[in-house]
Amino acid sequence: MKQPSPRGELSALLLSVIAGSVASAQDALPRLDALTGESISRTPDILHDDDLQLALFCLYELHYSGVDGAGDDWEWDPDLLRIRHRIEAAFEQRVRDETVVPALPEPTSEAVCAELFRLTGEDGGPSMSRFVAKSATDDQLREFLVHKSVNQLREADPHTFAIPRLSGRSKAAMVEIQADEYGNGLPARMHSALYARTMRELGMDDAYGGYLDAVPAITLAVNNLMSLFGLHRRLRGAIVGHLAAYEMTSSQPNRLYSRGFKRHGYGPDVTEYFDEHVEADAVHEQIAGRDMAGGLVESDPRLLEDVLFGAAAGLAIDTLMTVHIMESWEAGRSSLRASDVAA
């Protein structure tokens, strides 16, 4: 991923350190650690803190495609891991404060599946999909693509980290879902490739992270949450619950997104990404609820609460992003950090 622009002292120093542009990393790392502590203690809300969310995103990115100019050794550098852990601890606590975990069902596959369907069927605030279908302008469709591009151009990767931590029925189910996400062996059918094609058709940059500078902190938080859950074995129940909720809230919204792009005259090359998800996720949500999440809980009932936490947390943080976007649009503003970035 190309180096993003810093959003404050912390991300500026972090990017300099990993790019090797500080005189001495040994001197800079204690400063980075101190800055991290100061940033965490003075932020009014880490979910909306651009500097902290970008720093965390870049630290996670070392585990994905890397950051241009950053040496590969930084991925497992103990000092950076300690700094990441400090941000993660504050982030996770804030997410837990924001999340209401529902009453726990019986630890059976069917009961877990039914509860996840109930939870994801609740009204979670404003509907971006209905707005996109009926009212969004062409510029707003492009903004929508920018927000989603942070995840969709690497679609499925954060959850894939969980595969080695699962076994049996839940593992087979996650692999079945992820194989579909990755195109069943056909690179052009990878969901990330379909999304890239949609962006190209609109004349947008389809490079992973190409619009990172444009998205607000809350969009980074939505993505950081997946990495937090995916990279910690401790949170394997949460990443499974997160994926189940993600799949269960996808089919109908994607049908509406597709309608929004068709309304503006865009053809199948643009809408295929969304059309594909209507059918794919109607399959995935059944596998995810019953076999992946339900199967995990049946094999280890202690993970029941984590599964529901992961699902509820994903929905809660997603709702905050939707609220930000819809409030911006209702006020006649761009929901991005710089209004000309998506043009």
Binding site: F117, S251, Q252, R255, E279, D281, A282
Partner: peptide
């Protein structure tokens, strides 16, 4: 479903 014979999630609606 509008994708019959495949499911499109309409049963929930």
């Amino acid at each position: 479903s509008v994708l019959k014979p495949y499911c499109d999630g309409s049963h929930k609606l």
